[in-house]
Write a protein that binds this DNA or RNA. Structure first.
Lengths: 252, 252
DNA sequence: TAGGATCCACTGGTGGATCCGT
DNA sequence: ACGGATCCACCAGTGGATCCTA
């Protein structure tokens, strides 16, 4: 299903992403000769992979970036019709065994986030929505992600591509990322990974990341002993990405 | 239905409250020859009035305190079985017309809160609870409000009296109250009452307080014009009262 | 297992409506 | 209208589980 050659430069990558704005994932998958499953539970990650194909990403599982020759990472982010992310954005797994030994400058977080292409995918509603507003009160749409959009339905194929954003952290943002990274790694070192909650961190946060809760990783505990634990990842807070999408220089 | 004479002193008031611990409101109402309605929507405030009768409160609507000769205010507070308040605690209405003209020292907030008898009423669950934990996982009870309690049912009559607490703000707490009062009144003065949200304030907050939304009060707007608005009250944050019930000197 | 992610149950808090008795 | 309060819908956020592909 890989159809596109890698983009030659940033301008070409940007142009390709811009050309997709407004398209539904169903259309895009069809254009590539593929189909999208209807079950939202079975299609996690498919949207991200589809966009990688469409934009000509070449980085395999081994590469640091999706576009190694450009040093750019692709992130799709599901957003509400108002443009707010529905979820936090995964960055990378935490190297639990080496926690505390990797300074910010050498961290995967820094390398992944050095240059990111965010592609919002507008999802009309959550899949799991069980009830509509019983009073029928309509709260209005503050932001039209693209003109002429007609939004209805909740399946993966109904999601539409929103305006893409190239982002490099400003010095101030990078400083905030470093502070969070140091703090969170410090917390892991002090109390052990189990003690770090999703509340910690201004724009980064630490959350579980495992294919199944039966997957275990090993990490040093508070007393230095080895603990079997769920793998964790760094995530960008939804709040922060929401701010970014409106103003790339913003901090929440 | 008023049965008790006013308590002679704080010790007697405290003894009466302590004697009620563990009793259900149904029992208490019955002992007074009264009955409690079953509909939770129709019984708002009844619990508070019942306790006033039982403890011999004499302050009418005109008085500042429920026990004027003791200078004590009675507050019932609905709590979960873990002892956490289910709601914020009403203090008093905001004098919208005089906002900004009443210094903390002369404020109703300060007078009301100078000395409070908190009586927790343990409610097993919210009335409006629509679903139980589907996984059946039991999260344990961190605090047994009284020994031997057997808690079940959700009606008003099933609520049970918890351990009472006499509270006077510590100097640090009073300072926090004053700061919030000044801040909130300042916000009202700057942007008008409509701009003050429930987020403002560390331990006090401002929320609507009206018998019906058709009830209007008048307040000065941002430009100094007169606005019809919903009456507002000062409330103690649930978070703060939760802290108080565990440690009367605490701040959240 | 790493990398692409999303689902969903639950909790805390807000915003606002509402009820009763005096 | 004031003083006694509670109800309830909604939303943000967390905590943790889970899915697919390579």
């Amino acid at each position: 299903m890989r159809c596109q050659p890698p983009p030659a430069d940033l301008a070409e990558l940007g142009a390709r992403a811009a050309a997709l704005v407004g398209a539904s994932l169903a259309d895009l998958a069809h254009g590539l000769g593929g189909e999208l499953g209807a079950d939202p539970v079975r299609t996690k990650g498919h949207a991200g992979e589809l966009l990688e194909h469409l934009l000509g990403a070449t980085g395999g599982p081994t590469a640091v970036h999706d576009f190694p020759h450009l040093g750019v990472e692709l992130k799709t982010v599901p957003v509400t019709p108002l443009g707010r992310p529905r979820e936090s954005t995964f960055v990378c797994l935490i190297p639990l065994l080496a926690a505390g030994d990797v300074p910010w400058a050498d961290s995967r977080v820094r390398r992944k986030l050095a240059h990111v292409l965010f592609v919002p995918l507008v999802a009309p509603s959550r899949v799991g929505t069980r009830r509509a507003s019983p009073d029928g009160f309509h709260r209005g749409r503050a932001w039209e992600p693209f003109q002429g959009s007609h939004i209805s339905g909740a399946g993966l194929g109904d999601r539409r591509v929103g305006p893409p954003l190239f982002w490099r952290p400003t010095p101030v943002q990078e400083r905030a990322l470093k502070d969070d990274y140091d703090d969170l790694m410090g917390l892991v070192g002090v109390g052990g990974i189990e003690e770090v909650s999703g509340h910690a961190g201004r724009i980064l946060q630490v959350r579980p990341k495992a294919a199944s809760s039966r997957c275990r990783a090993f990490a040093p505990g508070p007393e230095g002993e080895w603990l079997a634990t769920v793998p964790r990842g760094f995530y960008l807070r939804a709040r922060f990405v929401a701010a970014l999408l409106r103003d790339p220089t913003a901090l929440p």
